[in-house]
């Protein structure tokens, strides 16, 4: 740029540098106000003893020390791991449903929407329906178990089964979600590749594994992300179906946080914030993995 240009004005000279900042500003501001600042605040509160009304008392790592000594925390952590492992079943189940529905018969749209239905209804409704499904005496599930084995099992009152029972309820809508992701993926398959594979005599499982699935990788990735995050923030179902019971055995971190900080028996903001920070760190592990993978993919392009 020649030296005679100062008259061109500040804007002209810096347009290329300023414009992106201006475009980013509204989003960045929202992100700052609604995401970054609350995260910092949560961390800050987690170093205090605070009931939400009185003065905050600085106790350093006191809340975290207490957390490590809290039996409920370990129950919640263990249940979160079970959630994480079993919730992932939604992905193969969603794939199976998608493959099954990916055909053109009369009325398939109706079937597709019926399969998708559980994802449309609220988690609260799902929770209530499964609560009645499991209810002793009149629940369909208990009746079936009674008819099959002669014994009665109250799923939601039995510490051995309660978490599994809630996860089963959660899998119902989550499978539908994964199914939709795979259905859109299946629409975008490359027909030439499949044709070529068929000519090479690939069919059935081999065709699925070596030709279809690699093409569905983006859908699998998204399904994985939403399912892992869904498992870690499982809150609504636990709250509706058991409220963490019986005697805290279906507790998960997100509900534990709510219970300590905001429920009728809680209002320990600092302790709740400490749980939130721990949950955030666990999520961070997964989020980092996903982001690293995404960046790697973009570089390869």
């Amino acid at each position: 740029m020649p030296d005679t240009a100062p008259s061109a004005g500040f804007w002209k000279r810096n347009q290329l540098r300023i414009a992106p900042i201006l475009f980013l500003a509204p989003g960045a501001l929202m992100f700052l106000i609604y995401v970054l600042i609350p995260i910092v605040q949560s961390v800050w509160i987690s170093f205090h003893d605070w009931d939400g009304l009185g003065a905050k008392v600085w106790i350093g790592l006191g809340n975290y020390a207490e957390l490590l000594d809290d039996d409920t925390f370990y129950v919640a952590l263990k249940n979160n791991l079970i959630w994480l492992a079993l919730y992932l079943l939604a992905i193969p189940m969603g794939l199976a449903a998608a493959l099954f529905l990916n055909q053109s018969v009369w009325g398939i749209r109706l079937y597709k929407s019926l399969f998708f239905f559980p994802f449309v209804i609220s988690q609260v409704v799902v929770g209530l329906m499964f609560t009645w499904f499991y209810a002793p005496d009149f629940g369909l599930f208990s009746q079936a178990i009674h008819w099959l084995t002669g014994a009665e099992v109250a799923i939601l009152a039995d510490e051995r089964f309660v978490t599994l029972g809630i996860i089963a309820a959660g899998l119902w809508p989550q499978t539908a979600y994964c199914m939709i992701l795979y259905l859109t993926g299946l629409n975008n398959l490359n027909p030439e590749q499949i044709e070529a594979a068929r000519m090479d005599n690939a069919r059935g499982w081999r065709l699925l594994w070596h030709v279809i699935l690699p093409q569905l990788a983006p859908a699998t990735f998204i399904a994985m992300v939403v399912t892992v995050i869904g498992a870690l923030r499982s809150f609504d179902l636990v709250s509706i179906m058991t409220a963490g019971g019986p005697y805290g055995s279906s507790q998960v971190l997100s509900y534990f946080m709510y219970e300590q900080a905001l429920s009728e028996y809680g209002y320990r903001m600092g302790y709740g914030a400490a749980i939130a920070v721990v949950l955030f760190l666990i999520m961070m592990v997964f989020i980092t993995l996903f982001i690293v993978r995404m960046i790697a993919q973009e570089r390869n392009r």
Binding site: A157, G245, P246, Y247, G248, E259, E264, Y265
Partner: peptide
């Protein structure tokens, strides 16, 4: 019980009572 004792204690206590009854 849950009005006479501290809220956090009440929660833990009643969970304990429930567990005891099972």
């Amino acid at each position: 019980y849950d009005r006479d004792t501290d809220a956090e204690m009440a929660k833990a206590g009643m969970e304990g009572f429930q567990e005891f009854m099972v």
